[in-house]
Write a protein that binds this DNA or RNA. Sequence first.
DNA 1: GATGAATGAGGATTCATTCAT
DNA 2: TATGAATGAATCCTCATTCAT
Lengths: 225, 225, 225, 225
Amino acid sequence: MSEEPKPRRRQARGERRIAQLLEAAANVFCASGYTATSTNAIAREAHVSPGTLYQYFPNKEAIAIELGERLLHDMREAHGQAFTAENLALPLPGLLDAVVDPLIEFNCANPAFLALMHGSDVPGRIAEEHDELHATLLTRVEEVIGHYAPALSAADRSRTAGMAFAAFKGGLDLVLAAPEGPERDATVAELKTLLLRYLSPLVEESAAASPAVATRPGASGIHTP
Amino acid sequence: MSEEPKPRRRQARGERRIAQLLEAAANVFCASGYTATSTNAIAREAHVSPGTLYQYFPNKEAIAIELGERLLHDMREAHGQAFTAENLALPLPGLLDAVVDPLIEFNCANPAFLALMHGSDVPGRIAEEHDELHATLLTRVEEVIGHYAPALSAADRSRTAGMAFAAFKGGLDLVLAAPEGPERDATVAELKTLLLRYLSPLVEESAAASPAVATRPGASGIHTP
Amino acid sequence: MSEEPKPRRRQARGERRIAQLLEAAANVFCASGYTATSTNAIAREAHVSPGTLYQYFPNKEAIAIELGERLLHDMREAHGQAFTAENLALPLPGLLDAVVDPLIEFNCANPAFLALMHGSDVPGRIAEEHDELHATLLTRVEEVIGHYAPALSAADRSRTAGMAFAAFKGGLDLVLAAPEGPERDATVAELKTLLLRYLSPLVEESAAASPAVATRPGASGIHTP
Amino acid sequence: MSEEPKPRRRQARGERRIAQLLEAAANVFCASGYTATSTNAIAREAHVSPGTLYQYFPNKEAIAIELGERLLHDMREAHGQAFTAENLALPLPGLLDAVVDPLIEFNCANPAFLALMHGSDVPGRIAEEHDELHATLLTRVEEVIGHYAPALSAADRSRTAGMAFAAFKGGLDLVLAAPEGPERDATVAELKTLLLRYLSPLVEESAAASPAVATRPGASGIHTP
DNA sequence: GATGAATGAGGATTCATTCAT
DNA sequence: TATGAATGAATCCTCATTCAT
């Protein structure tokens, strides 16, 4: 009992330091990109000496990897709540809300995520982990599409999922570029509209008897007269 | 008269050197990103000594800027042929073919363009030029949308143009990631489908009397014979 | 009376700590040399924190110095027992046994001694202390030689002592490199043979009437007919 | 013909630089030992920038290796002239002169050799090369001893060679420590005396009928007038 | 113009040493 | 006292840039 408080406090301090360093790294990576970021710059941003940084991370790559892993983990949690069975029961617009909103929110809250994932000059293991997450997300999107449009061939489903995801990422950049507030909200809404229009025909074709999917008049671009 | 040939030859030689260096730079930037690329690596790739490189460019940023400007210029030419009055007279699928294809082609032929424009760690002036081109393109897209959907408010038009462009960029990445050949073609077709589905409702709403615009899947320009 | 035990215990504990640290330092110096040894490595080897190390030593050099001094002290004790009046009365082979054996034993038991004394990159004061010991030993050897060969000039005596000592050091390295056991013993015996052959002529020349000094037939290579 | 002078001059300059850097390294290694020597210190000693140093050597170890190899090569040449058949025909004192003198001279001229070979914290490849040379030398000494004392068993021959060589190394240190001039010469002479006295009995024992080998003090090549 | 050696400031990393707990 | 986190100067090494040839 007399020996616990110290180690605990130490561990707590260590955790705080790590968090502090990772946050600093996130900021600097965001501002300058991975390659152009120096460990000294990270240490400075964290108000810490270079030596301290190296007490917690063996090298620059390790920082990026740890940061990447934490972000990926959070990201997985975020999308884990998105693709629930409950949400799959919703009509397409509802599903899009349920899926798009948390992903957008996560990326708004963690701009370093994209900064780290975009760079082509990023250490191997991050790229791998990123690809893994990418693949997971893609699989989820494919499953969703398969659920809404069971008649689609595997190849079509895969291609559609890929394009939807690509468009989402493009829209995400737009959202992040927009200033927080009504403009960003409008951009998010527009992104959902785009996805809805892209995906609706698939749903309608394979399940023509679901008028509930039409959310706004004219929202789904394609109808037979 | 006796002194002209030399300067001309010199200028010609200089142009060749510059082209050679820029091509080398494009390759290395593509492979390693701007920051991670060393001027020595560019010189090596160009089979030229570092000193020669600095005879033509004052520093590393200048290389990127010149390369960026040339690419932007070519890109402008490419899209200049896209947004012609003639093309504006086409129904939407035709217009999409006319606009999307050259842009895709340009980016396939010049992967350095995206490599240079993507990097968050790229020198300021490139970013500026890029933003300029971006704005130009966006304006063109807005004009097109204004032409096809004259009833749209300026704000809606702008937002729609932005989203369409963003989705295009997302799709472009996908296209570039796909291996050349039928898979890439299919991806391009899918991108057009997405844009078509996204934009069709606008056209139909404001110009209900244009049955030609009716969007059937596969209506866009790329189809298998 | 109530305050004495504590200081004593403290001093005792301190002594133990110091011994523990010096032993650790000896190990690490042996394994990696003085310069390449980090204070953290010593602390780790001693199962102690770096802070604790600095509670007992002001800096890295001080550790080496203290270790050196202790080793030198022990070494002095070892050779103090070697050069006794009693031993000086022995014939040369007996004297060599009496002198060489304890020195060899000491160095076998304390490999850090040579590790510390050999390094050319060792802090100045160790070198000084080492030189002091060196001088002491040399003086003793000179005295011995003076005792056995009183006719020798001072210069000759000094030169002979230096060479005998140098050869001994060379042989010592060889002994330490040999695996413990019969091979090492044979090497020690050979070293004694060398010293005997080197020194015998001096003895015989100045004290021609001491046939006892010839240990083995032919052992002293030089004799006048 | 017009293209040769430049490359040649360049190569020549490169060779000079390398020699200059190696000489500087030799000096600093001598003064501070391998581990304590910084590449910047070598560059400074060579009146050159750190970058220049790294144009010719990939790292510190490479400098030590190259220096070691050059010294070992020279050393091999030096002793190659020592162990000739001609010299083997000489009586022992003559042979000792022929063998000891060039080795001593080499080490006086190249003190870095011992500095590099002594350090226990020296890069692996030097140690290996050094061991190789060591083994070569030892083999030669064994051969010589075998020649002069053919009756000796292999084990005795090997042990004797090892001890003679060890004593030589000890004496070498003494020689190097002595100031150049008569004192050093006297030390060298004394070293030869030691070796002569150590080895003579073997010769006499196995070749008792060779009065030419008779060893009088001062028989070796160096004598005061 | 072309070359490539030279430069030196800057980046990643280590380690002797200090200090709050 | 003991701890181990914190410090920052010093190391090794790179690379944008300059300069003698």
